[in-house]
Amino acid sequence: MTLLLQYTLLYASVLILVALGGCFSERSGVINLGLEGIMVMGALGGALTMKYMAGLPGIVIVLTTILISALFGLIYSLLLAVACINFKADQTIVGTALNLLGTALATVIVKAVNTAANPDDVSSNVQYIAAKKSLIVNIGGFEFNWFMLLAFVLLITAYVLLYKTRFGLRLMACGEHPQAADSVGINVYKMRYAGVMISGVLGGLGGIVYITAGVSEWKFENGVAGFGFLALAVMIFGQWKPLRIALAALLFGMFRALSNVYSGFDFLTALNIPSTVYNMMPYIISLLVLTFTSKNSKAPKAEGIPYDKGQR
């Protein structure tokens, strides 16, 4: 049971981070379908940091990993921002390209790193078992992970940022009615950049949390297995509101956690369901949830529409 709770919280942390990322981007008016790719890049930065920092004091490792993952995500998200905000590119095409590019680029980089270290190693795996220990504090069998705290803190921050600050008000105005925002002197392009970049930071963080959640090495050829899209489903289910997103993330996180720990439950093993079914579960659930929540969605009105100053 503890294990289920632990994994639920971990996967919920991932989903909270990434879904909030999606939320900030969409609230500013840019649909970020590239979260998956951003996660991969964040994971790459974090994993390499952890690999090479093993042995240093735990706190240093944790903070550096967070920083580098966020930075990787941020830089990568700029590709989306430039294309969609400055060049008014189709957000779906660019997002999809970023997902494919993320996996390809990460694989190429990891393989290059691996082959450079050992010419016989042509795998795309990165190991971070040593450094992973510093992420975890064992509290009576429950492995508390610093990333859980990170997700919680960022959730609160996101809520305050959106609803209590000038920045949040302006950001939301750009996603709802950019012409109105422009007419009162708000720079829509800048705000959209901010939204996308925040989604890069959060997506990058989500990436490293995801790959360190269950395992201690990651095969980058596999990307992040649609988790970025699960986060988008969480965001839609959460109706673009941070607190509802958090609740949705807990629900989805539990289903994802089940596939890791179902063998620990006697009644679940007794059902004799193949493990593949548990693997499919989060995708099926999200499809069902989307079916029943998308009809009356409260999506930001101007999302997906490139803003053109000339067209008013």
């Binding site: 008000l169 105005a173 012409q179 925002a181």
Partner: peptide, 25 residues
């Protein structure tokens, strides 16, 4: 009208010239 439909009247009026303390409304 250049009004954000899901905002309040007040939020629409102050948008762009929000009175703030340290960035908080």
């Amino acid at each position: 009208f250049k009004l954000v439909e899901c905002f309040s009247v007040l939020d629409n009026i102050i948008l762009g010239v929000e009175p703030c303390k340290h960035g908080f409304l």
